[in-house]
Simulated assay, not measured.
Amino acid sequence: MFAWLKRFWRRPPAAHSTGERGALGERLAREHLRKMGLRILATNWRNPRDRRGEIDLVALDGQVLVFVEVKTRAAGALVAGHHAVDARKKRALLCAARAYLRGLDEPPRSVRFDVVEVALPESRHGVDGEQRDGPIRGPSASPPLSPALRHFKNLPLFPKGFLPRSR
């Protein structure tokens, strides 16, 4: 009887692994930012001295240098992507952002921190943004489901009065 019950509680397999979903989310966020007029300078940037901290995307919005954290979630996730950037993650991002700024020849006039939340639609086979054979389709005749993107600009990451400094 236990085996019979397990069939009902087992989650369906996800179409992609967590890493693949994250890469898909970052690709969608990169395309979104380009459409918004931002120029992408770096993707998945890591400090050469401390490989723990990673900045998902570094972009330029006019003269503003933008550090972007991408959070990919299921459409029905309980915690929104921008809420998932907790104090520990902010400290790591701030450390990585400072390292990135130290490596620049000329510091930007200003910097900001954005979060792009990518909500992938749910399918019968798990959470996914696309399947190997095309976009996700809902019940029989419904149109394909597409990921939803939310862009949160200028979230508090940097201390008040923070200015990028040259070396």
Rank of each mutant, 00 (worst) to 15 (best):
residue 86 D to Y: 10
residue 94 L to F: 15
residue 58 V to L: 03
residue 85 V to T: 14
residue 145 L to K: 15
residue 60 L to G: 02
residue 132 R to D: 11
residue 159 P to N: 08
residue 140 S to I: 10
residue 81 G to Q: 01
residue 41 L to N: 04
residue 5 L to F: 15
residue 152 F to C: 03
residue 50 D to P: 01
residue 37 G to H: 09
residue 14 A to Y: 06
residue 148 A to G: 04
residue 151 H to N: 07
residue 102 R to H: 13
residue 72 T to V: 06
residue 17 S to N: 07
residue 103 G to W: 08
residue 116 V to C: 04
residue 89 K to W: 02
residue 30 R to I: 03
residue 31 E to G: 08
residue 32 H to A: 11
residue 36 M to D: 13
residue 43 T to Q: 14
residue 70 V to H: 01
residue 87 A to E: 15
residue 144 P to Y: 07
residue 50 D to S: 12
residue 102 R to L: 13
residue 76 G to R: 12
residue 100 Y to K: 02
residue 151 H to L: 05
residue 125 H to P: 00
residue 153 K to N: 03
residue 165 R to S: 11
residue 23 A to P: 00
residue 87 A to P: 02
residue 69 E to W: 04
residue 153 K to Y: 07
residue 67 F to M: 05
residue 77 A to C: 07
residue 147 P to T: 09
residue 102 R to Q: 15
residue 159 P to K: 06
residue 160 K to I: 14
residue 167 R to P: 10
residue 83 H to A: 13
residue 116 V to L: 15
residue 29 A to F: 02
residue 82 H to M: 09
residue 139 P to D: 09
residue 165 R to T: 15
residue 120 L to D: 01
residue 12 P to C: 06
residue 10 R to Q: 15
residue 58 V to R: 01
residue 89 K to F: 05
residue 106 E to G: 05
residue 37 G to T: 10
residue 40 I to D: 01
residue 60 L to R: 12
residue 87 A to N: 06
residue 48 P to S: 08
residue 121 P to R: 08
residue 3 A to S: 12
residue 39 R to S: 11
residue 143 P to E: 12
residue 14 A to L: 07
residue 88 R to N: 09
residue 36 M to P: 00
residue 124 R to G: 12
residue 91 R to S: 12
residue 21 R to D: 01
residue 99 A to W: 05
residue 146 S to H: 09
residue 153 K to D: 04
residue 35 K to P: 00
residue 154 N to S: 14
residue 42 A to L: 08
residue 16 H to L: 15
residue 74 A to M: 04
residue 67 F to K: 03
residue 17 S to E: 10
residue 66 V to S: 03
residue 68 V to E: 00
residue 90 K to W: 05
residue 24 L to T: 10
residue 4 W to A: 10
residue 97 A to V: 06
residue 89 K to M: 11
residue 1 M to H: 10
residue 159 P to S: 09
residue 142 S to G: 06
residue 145 L to R: 14
residue 114 D to P: 05
residue 31 E to A: 14
residue 46 R to D: 00
residue 147 P to M: 09
residue 152 F to V: 08
residue 52 R to C: 05
residue 68 V to P: 00
residue 55 I to N: 00
residue 160 K to N: 06
residue 33 L to D: 02
residue 119 A to S: 13
residue 90 K to I: 06
residue 54 E to G: 04
residue 114 D to I: 11
residue 15 A to N: 02
residue 30 R to V: 05
residue 159 P to M: 08
residue 138 G to Q: 13
residue 125 H to T: 15
residue 91 R to W: 09
residue 30 R to E: 12
residue 164 P to W: 06
residue 97 A to I: 06
residue 155 L to M: 15
residue 78 L to T: 15
residue 30 R to P: 00
residue 41 L to T: 12
residue 44 N to G: 11
residue 25 G to I: 04
residue 162 F to M: 02
residue 152 F to N: 04
residue 155 L to E: 06
residue 13 P to R: 10
residue 110 S to I: 03
residue 120 L to T: 04
residue 6 K to N: 12
residue 146 S to A: 13
residue 24 L to C: 04
residue 100 Y to E: 01
residue 122 E to M: 08
